[in-house]
């Protein structure tokens, strides 16, 4: 009975890590980034590249089936993914912004990037599933009838650390405050001398870094596939909308709802319809509470 709650929290942690980037581009660059899924994918594949470059496997950390080699690879992959994302912004999104292109044009560009990214990954890394390492997960019983793999605890722990760091960054650093200012009112922020270009750079860097963590952990838990990130796109969007798009913490809450919904769907034997059920929940929330769970009415 409680098993699905445990499973749901694990997938919620991954959805939330990925969806933070969607939430930030949505609020600061003001468009729905359909390429976010591919940022997860690219992050996961960069991690694979670094794991094989380091050549020490992924290590272990007590009962957890990954250790420093994987964590170090993820950190370097975060940087590599951020560079890729910044280059793409510079080549495509920046010219469109400068031309004051409609929001929809940005969405369409992102949609095109998503397909290109997926297929470039297929071209470069191959389409067949890959793994960081082979290991046999050993589940332990944490409560009567509830079993979790130690890695799941590590994933939840990493997600909590990431959210805490994000919270401190947004509230305690000057750049974080500037980002919130741009998110509230870009014109006013600019008039007050905020360097909007730096804010945009940090938006991409933070979103891409957290997405890399999400992608790498998801790949560790399942497998690397060129479509892995794309398959996360709908849950991530649903988390964004459910939580109230303008609210970063709402996104985390939304991810929790989506993670639990998916886990319930799976436990009811509806695994094949998981994404469709997520979508229905999202539509129902939109129907009755268009501003989302934590959002404010415009």
């Amino acid at each position: 009975m409680m098993q699905f709650v445990a499973d749901g929290i694990v997938s919620a942690a991954l959805i939330a890590l990925g969806a933070i980037g969607i939430s930030m581009t949505y609020n600061i660059l003001r468009f729905a980034n359909f390429a976010q899924g591919e940022i997860l994918t690219i992050g996961a594949y960069f991690t694979l590249l670094l794991v094989s470059l380091i050549g020490a496997g992924i290590g272990t950390l007590g009962p957890v089936a990954f250790g420093w080699p994987l964590l170090v690879s993820i950190v370097f992959a975060m940087a590599a993914t951020s560079v890729v994302v910044l280059v793409v912004d510079w080549l495509l999104f920046r010219p469109l912004r400068n031309r004051k292109a409609a929001r929809i044009t940005l969405i369409m560009a992102a949609f095109g990037l998503s397909l290109m990214g997926r297929n470039l990954v297929t071209l470069i890394a191959g389409g067949e599933p890959q793994y960081y390492a082979f290991f046999i997960p050993k589940a332990i019983e944490i409560l009567p009838g509830v079993r979790l793999v130690p890695d799941d605890f590590a994933i939840i722990g990493i997600a909590i650390i990431a959210f805490a760091a994000l919270f401190l960054f947004m509230n305690r650093t000057s750049m974080g405050r500037q980002m919130r200012a741009v998110s509230e009112n870009p014109t006013l922020a600019r008039i007050n001398g905020i360097d909007v270009r730096a804010v945009i750079r940090w938006t991409w860097i933070i979103g891409a870094s957290l997405a890399t963590v999400a992608g790498a952990l998801l790949a560790h838990n399942t497998q690397l596939r060129p479509e892995m990130g794309f398959d996360m796109l709908l849950p991530m969007f649903a988390a964004l909308i459910l939580g109230g798009a303008s609210n970063l913490y709402g996104t985390i809450l939304g991810a929790l709802v989506i993670g639990l919904t998916e886990a319930i769907a799976v436990s009811l034997g509806l695994a094949g319809y998981r994404a469709a059920i997520t979508f229905m929940v999202m539509l129902i929330v939109l129907l009755f509470r268009p501003q989302g769970l934590l959002g404010e009415k415009e």
Binding site: F34, R103, L233, F237, A275, F279, M282
Partner: peptide, 18 residues
Amino acid sequence: EDFLAISTFGIGLSIQLV
């Protein structure tokens, strides 16, 4: 307008699943 984009994306995937 983003919500229409996201929702239609959802319906595309859901129809595929059905």
